[in-house]
Design a protein around this nucleic acid. Structure first.
Lengths: 119, 119
DNA sequence: CGGTATCCCGTACGATACTG
DNA sequence: CAGTATCGTACGGGATACCG
């Protein structure tokens, strides 16, 4: 049973929604280089607020995509790292972001052209 | 200039948000086999309402991902087809959906395990 | 440092009904 | 057949402030 994205009852839909959220993709990208601390992630991923970053990380941890390790030190240190499953997402995500970065210009000009012709 | 997904000011973010929406991905998949009519898409993509499907199609048309062709017939016929740029999205999207379909089970069991241990 | 706690808001999405 | 019109809502996300 591989699941069928066209079936509204299939949990695959849930995964697509998760991956499609605003920040998960960037978290995966930020973690592919190795474990990162909370503040590092916050700096890397421009514009994310702590609340939302925490939410994203917690959900991804729950889904088995990353691990959260707390070190008993002062000052406190918490490291986030991708699990093998999380790492396996890197390829597909890279493909999408590459596409996005390559096609930004074309999409924007298509939009401009479309909006110019109110006919 | 390829764009940088980590930069909150970069329009790449906008594309990620678009792609990440609930239906665009499924529309691309449904259209890779060739042009489709509105009702065909509606049938193929389980659970989508006409309003939302129209919204999605219009936005994708505006972004240059697909074309909308109206035939002057009775009964009316409208065909949607991917542009070359839209088609170029198929590979990356396929990668994501393949990943999703392959990892559904693991994610769900990770969730179940996580929720069982309230500690 | 690594988060929570609150408050707030837009909008993506859905249900239902109707039309050229 | 291929949509619009209307109404309603959940929630993802942002701003700001505070805490162990």
């Amino acid at each position: 049973m591989r699941g069928d994205a066209f079936d509204p009852g299939c949990p695959t839909r849930l995964l697509l929604d998760r991956i499609g959220d605003k920040w998960s993709v960037l978290v995966v990208l930020a973690l592919t280089g190795g474990p990162r601390r909370f503040t590092e992630l916050r700096r890397l991923i421009g514009g994310v607020t702590p609340k939302v970053l925490t939410q994203t990380l917690r959900t991804m941890e729950r889904d088995g995509l990353l691990t959260r390790e707390v070190f008993a030190e002062v000052p406190p240190r918490v490291e986030y790292a991708l699990t093998p499953m999380g790492l396996s997402l890197h390829g597909p995500i890279q493909a999408i972001t590459d596409w996005a970065e390559e096609n930004v210009e074309d999409v924007l000009s298509a939009r401009a052209r479309h909006d110019e012709l109110p006919a």
